[in-house]
């Protein structure tokens, strides 16, 4: 990424709380980050770290018993949190669109592929006649490598890879500015996955798309993303340029995460690193830094106070006491 980064989305202090029977569960906790125009931002973390919830929250798709309990989402200068239902409908699909985890269940089983695409177009552009919408759908779907004859098919008649491409097509058909791809390629085999990642990159270059790539697959992020955001237990652990984070992880969690990726150069006698402990129960998160019970470098302060997300070098944010001044009173105690 060059220097003239233009911000598309500013997320500030975003929290999502689920009201469960066991009490409130903070799935996303005071998350702040920016998304720049034309970039691919990778979001990684273990299952249940809140990355999917965060993605949905960007579209205000959190349904009861969950709610966005605090924060702002500034999209192209407008606060999405202030939108009413009608503005929200217009925003979803047209400005921001989402490619879902499971292509097998994310299409309506009794609706043909072309009906999906035409509906998406006509909901947002009621003046577009069906034929024009169909033409657009056809062009797009062919660009994604599906023959236009398949438009007449029902979802169950398509292979997993094709369905995922249809999902991507649905994400692209309205030329949304931001695509949230939530484990978009996880359910596919590696060959199809590699092809689609290539397509993502091409689409980004061609349409100047901005993509938020949510995945638990770090290797995938390394291939495709410009920047990376590591999440842990509903919080941001680290944000930075992808090569910088991979070469010099700052947060102990990022470090552990990178060390647990199998590597071809790994010595046979050396065992793959396994991070100790488990992610915390988010209805009762640990005091202080949420990672401290699993952290090898934990200090006394880590159990008492939560660190701030600090910019340690331009564009590099870390949420860890190792990289910030400790408050005096705690240091003396």
């Amino acid at each position: 990424m060059s220097n003239q980064k233009e911000t598309l989305v500013q997320v500030r202090d975003l929290s999502v709380t689920y009201h469960t029977r066991l009490g409130p569960l903070s799935a996303v906790d005071h998350v702040s980050f920016d998304i720049y125009k034309g970039e691919i931002l990778g979001v990684v973390g273990e299952s249940g770290c809140g990355k999917s919830t965060m993605g949905k929250a960007l579209m205000r798709l959190i349904m009861p018993p969950g709610e966005i309990s605090s924060g702002h989402i500034i999209f192209d200068g407008e606060d999405v949190m202030q939108y009413d239902q009608k503005q929200l409908r217009d925003f979803r699909g047209r400005r921001i669109s989402m490619i879902f985890q499971d292509p097998m269940t994310s299409l309506n089983p009794v609706q043909r592929v072309d009906e999906h695409l035409i509906e998406a177009i006509q909901v947002h552009e009621p003046q577009t006649p069906v034929e024009a919408a169909l033409r657009r759908a056809r062009t797009l779907i062919e660009k994604l490598g599906i023959q236009k004859e398949r438009l007449r098919d029902y979802p169950h008649q398509l292979s997993g890879g094709m369905r995922q491409r249809v999902m991507i097509g649905l994400g692209l058909v309205l030329n949304a500015d931001l695509i949230v791809a939530d484990e978009a390629t996880t359910s596919l085999d590696v060959i199809v996955e590699a092809k689609l990642l290539d397509e993502f990159k091409k689409l980004r270059d061609e349409f100047n798309l901005t993509i938020l790539m949510i995945t638990h697959n770090i290797a995938l992020i390394a291939q495709i993303a410009d920047r990376i955001m590591v999440m842990y237990a509903g919080q941001v652990a680290e944000i930075g340029d992808v090569t910088e984070v991979f070469d010099h992880p700052r947060h102990p969690y990022t470090e552990g995460l990178l060390r647990s990726v199998p590597n071809i150069e790994l010595d046979e006698r050396e065992e793959l690193y396994k991070m100790g402990g488990e992610p915390p129960n988010l209805s009762r998160p640990p005091a202080g830094c949420r990672f401290h019970p699993r952290c090898a470098q934990a200090m006394p302060i880590c159990a008492q106070r939560e660190p701030e997300l600090t910019e340690i070098s331009p564009g590099r944010f870390v949420h860890c006491w190792l990289y910030q001044d400790h408050p005096q009173e705690v240091a003396h105690a």
Partner: peptide
Amino acid sequence: TAGRARGIP
């Protein structure tokens, strides 16, 4: 949910 995310009423 996917439909909702596409802005379908």
